[in-house]
Design a protein around this nucleic acid. Sequence first.
DNA 1: ATACATACC
DNA 2: CACTGGTATGTAT
Length: 512
Amino acid sequence: MIQIFQIIEEASRGSKFYNHKKQRQEKIDERIRRMLELKDSFTPEQITRAEAQMDALTAQLEQSRDLSRFIVHVDMDAFYAAVEMRDRPELRDVPMAVGSNSMLSTSNYAARKFGVRAAMPGFIGRKLCPQLVIVPCDFEKYRAASQLVQQVMARYDPDFSMVSLDEGYLDITDRVATEMDGDTGDQTEDEVAQRLVGEMRAEICRLTRLTASAGIAANGMLAKICSDQNKPDGQFFLPRERPAVLDFLRELPVRKVSGIGNVLSQQLAALEVTRCGELLERRGLVRLLFSECTQLSLMRAGLGADPPGVGRDEDSHQKSVSTETTFAATADSAQLSELLGELCQQLSEDLRRKGLRGRTVTLKLKTSSFVVRSRATTLAEPTSTAAALLAATRPALARELSAGEPLRLLGVRASALVAAEGAAGPRQATLTEMTGRAAAPRHECPVCGRTAGSLAELSAHVERCLDGEAGGGGEQNGGPVGGQKRPPAPHSGLPRTKHKRIDSFFTAVKRS
DNA sequence: ATACATACC
DNA sequence: CACTGGTATGTAT
């Protein structure tokens, strides 16, 4: 076990990735040191008072604790790897992972014995396990398998919600009640719920030849933790009673709670909080050291008191759309600029396909030393055109490039989204709607609102507009904008080499 | 509002 | 040699 850590350490030591990770960790350590200093300055009275204040919060959470629902979290076991093993018997008994040399999405259980994990680069996986077989992602297959899983889930709760291809939540309370109305012998509600989930998993297995694990509890937060308890091919039921919930959580590592990640769990560990029960014991410190938002989620984690919804929020809408790509680091501005054009084109297509426009456009970049930066621009009007996206990001790229450091990633994001004209989805009444007048098909500058005669003219104008060159010039408000045309971006010659393009997700595994 | 950080899969 | 991509949200300014 200690070997695994050593091999990983050796494989990455001295690399830019490793150095960056180390620097980030030093920042975290520093933040923790400051936190502990602050902690040492608290008087016992301060802490007692903070505890009392926290008791008010926990009382409120207890008040609203809802134990009336049966929430189920279904999680497919080593999903992508399982699909590949199902379809290729020769992979069944060998350590294998799905992904690429630069990144693994998931590994099978044979590979996990060697320490090969999701989110690990393939080349390190091979160091840990030289026999490791790495299979490229085949999302069509995973989507098809996921569809079958969803067919089954829909029969138990038509309002189920998926988190990703391999994981989703159901509320089977109504289904259990219906079942209880029939002849269930002397089965209790709890037993019926567990039987139904067992049947659901069996159906999933019959239909897909893939195994699923499941958790059954009063809310999603708990159900998710439970689905991990008897993995793979198992399920775990947590009785919907306050004492059972508190007992279950008391010794549970905080890291198991969704939302408590690497950094927060380090901070908590520094306060000698590693189990959920300790979150309650040290509630005074939680109160004094964390933001209100974090206090709330930590008390929820300690009590297991989370709202029971399964995320089927009617008025929740997508907040952002983005696309990004990693490549062999370069500082060549012509190449990067062309790549940016392609990304804007891609994002434009994605936005149109989803019937959305964004008012805020953000350029994301990562330097060769893994430092991530972002530069945002908010436009006067939301857009989905590649030209406007490019105009909003290109100047920022130019500015960042002047620093001289090569880049290894570029990305473009649209946020502050609004539904495009005539599309369903999140809406924001437009001026033309409010005045009841139909919009003429015009080429309007998203920055200043002026009209261009053609798309090409618009593209050129918008860029200058954003650069601030068009403002004081001869253009008149409302009039057509002129300007030189920018040649369309041909395919960029940037090597996308070592990092092909894996639309990866992490599957199944989380912490070891 | 912007930038950066954290978290999830 | 080599460490992803997409979305949401929290924290800080």
